[in-house]
């Protein structure tokens, strides 16, 4: 298989590992980490297509990856702030117990 295929398969595998983490872990912070992993898999896709694509001089893949890293960092900060606020209110980060809007 060509190198591009290999990178895309690796990116799909990382994405599904992140998705499995999001859907199965109890701790809210680890769910957020799974989301970060999915964003990283998408970044790998962008860079692979930039390298093996038709027009690498336009730098579109690199730009998209840089902006995506910046946005992912900002989103991690805000998400962890929300988790801290929820923990302060309900004293738990267990997502199976946070299933009601009351309180």
């Amino acid at each position: 298989m060509s190198p591009l295929n290999a990178y895309l398969l690796l990116s799909a595998l990382l994405f599904s590992i992140g998705l499995a983490g999001v859907l199965t872990r109890r701790n809210a912070i680890l769910v957020l980490i799974g989301i970060e992993l999915m964003l990283n898999a998408a970044n790998l896709n962008f860079i692979a297509f930039w390298r093996y694509g038709p027009n690498p001089a336009a730098l579109t893949g690199i730009m998209f990856a840089i902006f995506s890293i910046a946005i992912a960092a900002a989103e991690a900060a805000v998400g962890l702030g929300i988790i801290l606020a929820v923990y302060r209110h309900t004293k738990t980060t267990d997502l199976d117990q946070l299933n009601s809007m009351k309180g």
Partner: peptide
């Protein structure tokens, strides 16, 4: 460490992959 619905979650991830 894993939630009660871990089986369906992993199945979804495997299908997506």
């Amino acid at each position: 460490a894993f939630s009660r619905s871990w089986l369906s979650g992993s199945a979804v991830a495997v299908v997506v992959f």
